[in-house]
Amino acid sequence: MSDVKNRLMSWESALLVLLIGSWSVASLTVEGFSGTSNMSFLLLDVSEIALMAIPLTLVVITGEIDLSVASTLGLTSAIIGTLWDAGLTIESIFVIALLVGAVCGLVNGLLVTRLGLPSLAVTIGTLALYRGLAYVVLGDKAVADFPQVYTGWATGSIGPIPKPILLVAVLAVIAGVILHATPLGRSVFALGYNQEAAYFAGIRVKRIKLWLFVASGVFASLAGIVYTLRYSSARADNGTGLELAVVAAVLLGGVSFFGGRGTLPGVLTGVLVFGVLRNALILADVSNEVLNFVTGLLLISSVLAPNLATLVRNRRSRTVTPPPLMEGTSV
């Protein structure tokens, strides 16, 4: 374990260096990057990604994936627009929106845990399904004119810290404690490494996975609420393609795509790295296509990097350290 921990720690410190490095380079080369207002905007701009990345971290550690988060965000936004048009109060709309997110997550979770379908396939399916549903609900309309109290909250800040980021921070701390210090968190890691052994130890594997999918849906619709209020615009295509940014941030944050490994602080750092790169590129007038290119590059390199590191380590130490699980190491 200490070995695994060391590896994680070094991954996280490397990530921290990357964050500071890209920050410094951007400050020096990109005009307007280092100003306080841009820093505020940078943080605000990653708040939805961070919200979706928090539960996704746990989902990926259990060895599953949820690619439908950005579509759930869009569906939430479309439903907020429709209901607001229909004259419901905004508070009741928020409640309904979160319920919709829960149902979206529940559908994913049930398909994965009850029918035993692979989550990659299921959530690619619901990625299309929920987005399609969003268009069915709202069409290509845009609904605006939400109450100033709420849009003001979504764009406001305390000092340089945007208010939605405070919400993210509170939720991240709670999720971090759950993941790293409670029985539930321990169970998540155990079942991520070996589902069968976890089940044999009395861990409710399916139930935990189901609830994590539900949490993922709820957080996605929370992101949908923030997104809609922040732009004061409910549209069916809100957040299109954002799932890739979320997955990139989670993997960049050191979570193993194969389950078992990962930390929440790492993922939050990953989100920030992603935010800095995106913000700097936007300020430098780089086109959207290039932004997609960068997201793709980040995704691939964050999956590749741990493997490369292991490869290099093994090659260097081939004759020095014993291979794991070797007979001679026990005594």
Binding site: M1, S2, F189, A190, N194, E196, A201, G260, L325
Partner: peptide, 24 residues
């Protein structure tokens, strides 16, 4: 290897996995 233990986790985590609620 498959059912009794989570090989990647530490000795203490494996020992404690059945009694986590009592360690809180």
């Amino acid at each position: 290897r498959q059912q009794g233990l989570v090989m990647e986790l530490s000795i203490e985590r494996n020992m404690a996995v059945t009694g986590m609620k009592r360690l809180r």
